[in-house]
């Protein structure tokens, strides 16, 4: 990671044409403007088309400017998030109380224990069906699943090719953002076999259960 100094000339690695500082700065400004206006994550593909540079250079660009937003000593209140296929601007978590006060947002944003359970099961087993979630939890999770879908934390990922064609669910980029990770690969490891695993059996896979 480069240092976050603002006057630093940005070097975009890669085979692309060499760019002077002004060109690079213009790219940074364009990127910021687009991401700000969009709000939602914008794909590298789209940015590549709009900025007129290859997608891998967009990724490099994002990686390079990231410290300016995200570094501890950065003077920004917003941060740049890079996901697998897209990037997004969001406010830094520590300013949530101020923002809520300024915008008059009273409450909300809490996730219940059942929501977290359902989210965890889906996150680690995605894409998976609701009946799988029900099975692991031992209770009906229909309501929680729909409320998580409404909150945009999970989304439909097609249907499983078994009788009834149940809907498959997976986590969204909103999920990644509010849980502070940039990819589901970064989910914390959950002990695969507990100290008291039964008969050394591996985790029951979704297919097995269905």
């Amino acid at each position: 990671m480069t240092s976050g100094s603002k006057n630093e000339t940005l070097m975009i690695d890669g085979i692309g044409e060499a760019r002077d500082a002004e060109e690079t700065a213009e790219l940074c400004r364009s990127l910021e403007a687009i991401l700000f206006a969009a709000g939602h994550p914008v794909t590298y593909e789209k940015l590549s088309a709009v900025l007129g540079i290859p997608a891998y250079e967009v990724r490099e660009l994002v990686k390079c400017v990231m410290p300016r937003y995200n570094a501890e000593d950065s003077d920004r209140g917003i941060m740049l998030l890079a996901f697998d296929d897209s990037c997004q601007l969001c406010t830094k978590e520590q300013y949530a109380p101020l923002i809520k006060e300024a915008l008059g947002i009273r409450r909300g944003g809490n996730l219940s224990a059942s929501s977290l359970e359902v989210l965890a099961i889906i996150a680690y087993n995605q894409p998976c069906t609701r009946s799988y979630v029900d099975m692991v939890r031992g209770v009906d999770s229909g309501y929680v699943v729909s409320s998580l879908t409404e909150k945009g934390l999970i989304e439909q990922r097609g249907r499983l090719d078994v009788p009834g064609r149940p809907i498959l669910y997976g986590t969204t980029e909103t999920f990644l953002r509010v849980f502070g990770i940039s990819s589901t690969d970064e989910l914390p490891a959950v002990s695969k076999s507990d100290d008291n695993a039964p008969g050394g059996d591996d985790a029951v896979s979704a297919d097995e259960l269905l």
Partner: peptide
């Protein structure tokens, strides 16, 4: 799942304030 959900609770309370 419960263990994971407890980890998730921590992650969410830390980063849940990221607003867009």
């Amino acid at each position: 799942a419960k263990q994971a959900s407890e980890l998730f609770a921590g992650m969410y309370s830390m980063h849940g304030g990221r607003m867009v």
